[in-house]
Design a protein around this nucleic acid. Structure first.
Length: 590
RNA sequence: GCGCCCGUAGCUCAGUUGGAUAGAGCAUCAGGCUUCGAACCUGAGGGUCGGGAGUUCGAAUCUCUCCGGGCGCGCCA
């Protein structure tokens, strides 16, 4: 609807080029927006004011000329100049009922855009290290990433969801050694737990599985394990201590034994993460293993290319990438002085690989604490000639859980933290998702557990779902009373006299809200803002509740009844489409 | 110190390609169920959009500056 209007206005503006307007006009300057005040009609356009100065014309005069130049159409009833030079558009009476029929015509395709050239988007999110279960912060990233993916797909992009498994590197070694220490404990040895290890309870079952699978093969006396190790924190350095412990484990068990513990531990953690995400209804198209990626030689090839571009140099025994040439604060290390490549090196290669797989847009959904990382990864892409703008990184601010007004503390290496699984079990997937998505991603989020669980009117989850269920309930009641409703006939009734049957402030507000859905999808996708969809659905639900309270649906007047049911079902359809994008269920009853 | 995010009604937050009188939920107050689901609806009060300066026909929105809060600033990932 909005796009049709914009095209009409663009045509009008173009026809004035060379006469009232100098030179060609940028079509993007012509925009229309919903009028906020009903006095101003349905839509308003400010192009006359925007062009007035460069045209050397009075904006109101220009507006009048544009109106006069509007092509013939059936959408606009009248257009008038208002205020400083606005063009207010009053649409034909049947504007919204025509749109209502489109909802029925398209069903779950309503609101979806199918452009001729679809951009290929690679959406990477969560990508949590397989060193522990997903926590509530990951839950927000998962909800956001998944909803954004659906939103972009609805808006016409070709979206692939990808999870990058950080299964290489030091963190996984720390995981393995943490498991080993718990394994030794379970076998009866007594030794201190490393300060820098993963202390969470989730480590113990992994250790027990090791016993089940390998028996006592990895057992060692505590004295042998601890012999001549440097001091752990607080007296010593926890990093040095755990590195020494890792080395000791490798020495005592041999490379094969160490590999078994490492791989089993990662596999178990990863299985848990996948299971969590599955239960959360978040699915990925690709799971990319960093280890496999590394072993393919892709990192070495990328570094070699950088070297040929003279973008690497050696200093203090380390190899540095000239990130500062691409806007970063300083150059960054890609190979440490001990010969080990940094995570950044693999990320350069990984993001390059994404582009070389043919994706136009790369989106990394990141926790807000990773913001400093974006510039250098972008720099890496630019080094290979890719535009920096092809990488977007929506940052997800922190989540704080509250119970009874009290903030719960979190920390991955601490023994107590709330996992995504615990949260889902407590409040349910739907409440979880809506609460995570309600707020803009760059707003930190206070998650009130009691509120999310409450089945009260304070809880926005139920408000939207209730609207959907209410329509289902009307349909059931319709059957029980054996009143007639036939979609085909209802469509014809509305085509004939919909504007008359669905008149009145509540019906009109509801249908106006309904017709906004395609615009909301388009804009929310463009702004990467799933929360805008949540707010819209709440508005749409409000308009349905208001209509429902004001007007009786199951009336004896056959045409009136059919028209009203048809309208309700269209709203229900859009609610369902919108909730599906958010990953929230649309229940028939509650 | 530098970088990013945030500051809008009592509370939690929408509102950024600059638009007309700044919105919603909760809370408060006043109303609405013999009839399709009251998990709902109708109405009222409530604002120096953190402060200041600038840009212009027009600023919550853009620029600068200051204040306050959060996060980050490794040869970790």
């Amino acid at each position: 609807m909005k796009n049709e209007l914009r095209e009409l206005l663009q045509a009008a503006v173009r026809s004035l080029e060379g006469s009232l307007l100098p030179g060609p006009i940028d079509a993007s300057a012509v925009t229309v927006e919903r009028a906020r005040d009903v006095q101003h009609g349905d839509f308003a356009c400010n192009v006359a004011m925007r062009l007035a100065k460069s045209a050397g014309r009075n904006p109101r005069e220009l507006a009048a000329a544009i109106i006069a130049a509007l092509p013939a159409n059936t959408l606009i009833d009248r257009a008038e100049v208002a205020g400083a030079g606005f063009i207010n558009l009053h649409l034909a009476k049947d504007r919204y009922t025509r749109e209502l029929l489109r909802v029925h015509e398209l069903g779950d395709r309503y609101g979806r855009n199918e452009p001729p050239h679809r951009r290929k988007v690679l959406l990477e999110f969560v990508s949590a290290n397989p060193t522990g279960p997903l926590h509530v912060g990951h839950g927000r990233q998962a909800a956001f990433g998944d909803a954004l993916g659906s939103l972009l797909a609805a808006a016409g992009d070709e979206v692939v969801r990808e999870y990058y498994i950080n299964d290489a590197g030091r963190q996984t070694e720390i995981l393995a050694v943490s498991v080993w220490v718990r394994y030794l404990e379970a076998g009866g040895e007594s030794l201190p737990f490393p300060q820098n290890g993963y202390r969470g309870d989730y480590i113990r079952p992994v250790a027990l599985h090791l016993h089940e699978r390998y028996g006592t093969r990895f057992m060692q006396p505590a004295a042998a394990v601890l012999e001549s190790l440097p001091a752990d924190a607080p007296e010593g350095d926890k990093e040095k201590y755990i590195d020494a412990l890792i080395a000791r484990c490798q020495q005592l068990l041999g490379a094969a034994g160490w590999q078994s513990i490492l791989e089993d531990s990662i596999a178990e953690m990863l299985a848990e993460i996948r299971d969590d995400l599955e239960g959360y209804r978040v699915r990925f198209d690709h799971w990319v293993s960093e280890r496999a990626f590394t072993q393919s030689g892709a990192i070495d090839r990328a570094l070699e290319r950088l070297r040929k571009l003279d973008l690497l140099y050696v200093k203090d025994g380390a190899t540095w990438f000239r990130a500062s040439q691409f806007g970063d604060d300083e150059d960054r290390v890609v190979i440490r002085d001990n010969g080990i490549k940094t995570y950044f090196a693999s990320d350069i290669a990984y993001h390059l690989d994404k582009r070389e797989r043919g994706y136009d847009v790369l989106i990394d959904v990141l926790g807000a604490d990773h913001h400093g990382y974006v510039t250098r990864v972008r720099g890496g892409l630019q080094a290979f000639g890719h535009p920096g703008e092809c990488l977007e990184a929506p940052l997800i601010q922190l989540v704080a859980l509250y119970r009874n007004g009290e903030k719960l503390s979190m920390g991955k290496r601490e023994a107590n933290f709330v996992t995504l699984r615990q949260l889902r079990e407590e409040v349910g997937n739907d409440a979880c998702r809506i609460f995570y998505l309600m707020r803009s991603n760059d707003q930190s989020l206070d998650f009130d557990l009691e509120l999310a669980k409450s089945k009260s009117n304070e809880n926005p989850v139920f408000y939207i779902q209730y609207a959907h269920a209410r329509v289902a309930s009307v349909m059931k009641e319709l059957g029980a009373r054996s009143l007639g409703y036939e979609p085909q006939a209802a469509g014809e009734i509305i085509a004939r006299r919909g504007a008359e049957l669905l008149a009145g402030p509540h019906a009109e507000a509801m249908l106006a809200s309904l017709s906004r859905y395609p615009e909301v999808i388009e804009q929310a996708a463009a702004q990467r803002a799933p929360h805008a969809l949540v707010h819209y659905l709440r508005d749409l639900a409000t308009s349905l509740h208001a209509f429902y309270n004001a007007e009786r649906v199951l009336v004896s007047d056959d045409e009136l009844r059919q028209a009203r049911i048809h309208a309700l079902r269209a709203v229900q359809c859009v609610l369902r489409n919108g909730l599906a994008i958010l990953g929230v269920s649309a229940p028939e009853s509650m």
